[in-house]
């Protein structure tokens, strides 16, 4: 399949089930809401090394937040519920409770509960107070600045982790510029996050290594400097590859996000240095979710 000079390879992204949750973080200003959101989702690029994957989902206008202040929604994903129930309160405790003027609310209903105030209230050392309004329990924890307000807990969902696209470009600069355009389009899809720096993972990776104990290593088939030494997936005009990894609350969300990214890249076209779009998989035998690029773009 060739679209606007860009080859859409007959490949698919292979993704895995993950457990996810959403938080809504607010603050007196949009700036501080985003600082808290970026901090709480820091060092959350991959479950392999970070214990969870997290990222900013979207900014939320004052009219939609639980307290009428500027907000940001964030998503977290882990391999199992126990992991989520551990990392989420830990991260909120260190990164949101501490962030000036912040408050933290449930971002989804249903599913198994993930603690927010249920765990963090004890910071109040007995001075914390709860309020139950409209059937929902909310905690007020006294802090030096005033009060930290948070919901008792949030819900969770069976999500999908590890959706991805690979952008094969004509130069390093053009490939990165194209990836940035794709990220911008993909970040508009609700229910998804792109957990890597700026949404982009320049290293890529393959599963396993020749070294004992390494779970992931250089994806040599896509490394442009190795094309003379190893079997390569890169045609001669490809000089650089960038990957975008997608985690989402559903198969549909990840699929829509994948399509948004490919559409943005196709709109740039071969003239802007986008040579081909590929996807990472493990032969289809490991992950139950397959995002077939050509079917998504059909």
């Amino acid at each position: 399949m060739i679209l606007n000079g860009v080859e859409i390879r007959d490949s698919f992204a292979e993704a895995f089930p993950m457990v996810g949750t959403r938080l809504i973080i607010t603050a007196d200003t949009a700036k501080w809401a985003m600082i808290a959101a970026k901090t709480v989702t820091g060092f959350a690029t991959s479950v392999i090394g970070c214990g969870c994957e997290g990222g900013v989902e979207r900014e939320i206008p004052e009219s939609e937040t639980p307290d009428g202040r500027p907000g940001v929604s964030v998503l977290f994903f882990t391999m199992d519920l126990k992991g989520l129930q551990t990392v989420v309160p830990n991260r909120i405790g260190q990164c949101v409770l501490t962030s000036p003027t912040s408050a933290c609310y449930a971002g989804m209903e249903g599913g198994a509960k993930v603690s927010i105030g249920k765990a963090l209230r004890y910071f109040g050392d007995g001075w914390q107070i709860a309020k139950n309004v409209d059937g929902r329990r909310i905690w007020r924890v006294p802090v030096m600045e005033g009060e930290f307000v948070c919901d008792h807990d949030t819900g969770s969902v069976s999500g999908v982790g590890g959706g991805n696209i690979l952008i094969l470009g004509a130069s390093r600069a053009e490939t990165l510029a194209a990836a940035e355009v794709a990220v911008e389009a993909m970040q508009k899809v609700e229910g998804c996050i792109l957990p890597f720096p700026g949404g982009i993972v320049r290293s890529g990776s393959k599963v396993g290594s020749r070294y004992k104990g390494m779970f992931a290593s250089s994806n040599n088939a896509y490394c442009p400097t190795l094309r003379a030494q190893t079997e390569t997936k890169l045609t001669p005009e490809v000089a650089s590859v960038q990957e975008i990894v997608i985690d989402g609350v559903s198969f549909e969300a990840v699929s829509a996000c994948t399509r948004a990214g490919i559409e943005a890249l196709v709109a740039l076209g071969r003239d802007k240095g986008v040579v081909a779009i590929d996807a990472g998989n493990y032969g289809g035998n490991l992950g139950p979710f397959h995002f077939k690029l050509r079917e998504i773009m059909a």
Binding site: D67, G68, A103, G146, V149
Partner: peptide
Amino acid sequence: HDLVMLRVLARRSPDL
């Protein structure tokens, strides 16, 4: 005090 909690109450209860 400027209480964030009151903003939540205002959102959740039209009467308040």
